[in-house]
Each structure stands twice: as C-alpha cells, then as structure tokens.
Design a protein around this nucleic acid. Structure first.
Length: 281
DNA sequence: AACCAGGTTATAA
DNA sequence: TTATAACCTGGT
C-alpha cells in the first residue's frame, strides 16, 4: 500500500466521468482500476490516494502518470477563468476532475466501440474483449483481465468478434486491426506527430472519425489541444452560449474562445452538462 | 412500441 | 460541399 498526494483531485468524479471504462466500484468506496499492465485498488482520503496493486514495481510513478498528478490544473483553470467570464460557473464545479492517461491501444478500441452506444454497453463489450483475449491477473483473490496485447489483437478475425456484442462496429475493429498490422509502433509514431497529423493518421481507420480520434489523442496521449465534440458538448454549447452549428463550426467557436487547453475545456463542458442532467453511469 | 445511446459512413441533393 | 438515413444491441 502506498500513499500518493493528489491535491484537489476527486477520485470518484474522475473515474465516473465517462472517460474510463475499466474500473469497479467496491462496497468500501474504493475502486479497482485495470491499467495496461496491472490492477490497482485505490481509495481516496482527503488529498491523498492510497493505492495497492498486484504489481508494486514503480507503482508511485505509475499512479502519478495515470491520474495526471503532475499537471497544474489550478493554474490552467485560473488562466481559463480570464478568457470566458460566464464559464467560471463550469470551472468552479470541475476543479477536481482530471484527464486520465490511459493506454493508447485500449483507447483506440474503446472509443471505436463507444460510437452510437451507451456507457453500460461499452463497458460490457470491452470487458468481454479483455476476458476473451486478455491476460489474467490475480489480485486480492479475484481474477481480472488486462486489455489484450498487440500480438493477440493483430491475430483477430471477424468471427472472433461475434462474442463482443459490438454489432456493426465489428468491421471498424477489423479496420483497426489491419491498421495496427501496418503500424506496429503507432503510439510512438503519434508521439512524433503534430496533433493535426495524428488526427488524420488515426482517421485512416474506418470507424474512426473526428470525435473518436480526438478521444484517443486526449485520453491516450494527453493532447489537450484536441476536440472531442460529441452530442453532450453540442448541447452544452447551444444551451450555455446559445451557439448552434455542426461539429466544425463548434470547434472553431471554442478554439477562438479558449485558445489553449481546449480539450480540457470540452471535458469540463461534458462533465458539467452530464452532471447537471444527473446521468452519471 | 418506439426511441435512444459520448458517431461514422455511404449516398444523394 | 452539406444534409440525411442506416446501423447492432439492449435498456426504458
């Protein structure tokens, strides 16, 4: 068990915000979270996280990286408050939200599955995916399944996907598999690209459009200059700013208004709008 | 029963 | 270039 300072972050708000699909809330209000290479149990008390894992190797750094604890969110929020006065209402209720740094491969598949789908079903399909093709981890007398490895994924055939209950998205997953065969080190390739190039690179994959590509870049690569504009954000922009338009018009509107850290602002809008509609999971 | 869910693609105007 | 229907599936 290690103790990690987490400042103003709120664990449950962050995990339940819809960006992550691989956690279980336990009776004692702690969470089991499945990371790319291990399972952690995490509990928050005040400004600290108490973390246990089946793999304690470098655990503190893994936790800091995953929960994005080195970023100065307070400074970002203070800067944003100066840019849009009425947005303060949103910022004031989102200060404890953090953008998780998740596994790029997992983000690619998860957000393809997420399209025109609901969170419950998304989580179910990803869990089936991991149970079917991922490695097992034993932790606290329970079995957990990691997200499948690259080598496992590139061997997948159409018939292997039937068990996942992903419907018409199976052909998109197959397109991602073909993409990965051609791009073994896609994560490091993206790390050396501008965000715009990375978006176009990912959108080669059938089933990866603007929204899904942006989610992969924000949640898998911490690219805060991306724009995961979805139906929630569109609703928000319409209700809050009275601005209506298509995804590209909204993108331009927000880019102009916030300049930097637009990705984070959009997460705040999503988070805020979702909370006030009381539709958390 | 009809509609919807953190979208994208194919097709038509 | 922009708009609209169709899409698997399970839940309400």
């Amino acid at each position: 068990m290690i103790k990690v300072f987490c400042g103003n972050m709120n664990l449950s708000e962050t995990l339940l915000s819809g960006q992550c699909f691989r956690f279980y809330e336990l009776e004692d209000e702690s969470f089991d979270v499945i990371l790319s290479d291990r399972v952690i149990n995490v509990f928050q008390s005040g400004k600290y996280l108490f973390v246990d894992s089946n793999n304690s190797n470098d655990l503190k750094n893994v936790v800091i990286d995953y929960f994005d604890l080195n970023r100065d969110y307070e400074k970002i929020i203070n800067d944003l408050k100066k840019k849009s006065l009425n947005f303060v209402e949103v910022l004031n209720c989102c200060g404890s939200y953090r953008v998780l740094k998740q596994d790029p491969l997992e983000m690619l598949f998860s957000y393809i599955i997420s399209q025109n789908n609901n969170v419950k079903r998304i989580m179910g399909s990803i869990e089936l995916f991991c149970k079917s093709y991922g490695n097992v981890v034993n932790f606290r007398n329970k079995e957990y399944y990691l997200f499948p490895t690259y080598d496992k994924i590139i061997g997948l055939k159409s018939e292997d996907l039937q068990v996942l209950k992903i419907g018409f998205r199976d052909k998109y997953i197959l397109s991602a598999v073909e993409f990965l065969k051609r791009n073994k080190d896609f994560a490091s390739t993206i790390n050396n690209m501008t965000t715009l190039d990375a978006l176009n690179y990912l959108m080669q994959i059938k089933g990866v459009g603007m929204k899904v590509a942006s989610c992969i870049l924000l949640f898998g690569f911490a690219r805060f200059d991306t724009f995961p504009i979805d139906t929630w954000v569109m609703k928000f922009v319409k209700n809050f700013y009275g601005f209506d338009g298509n995804i590209f018009q909204i993108k331009m509107f927000l880019e102009e208004k916030f300049d930097t850290n637009v990705g984070l602002c959009i997460q705040y809008m999503f988070h805020y709008n979702r909370n006030i509609n009381k539709k958390i999971i």
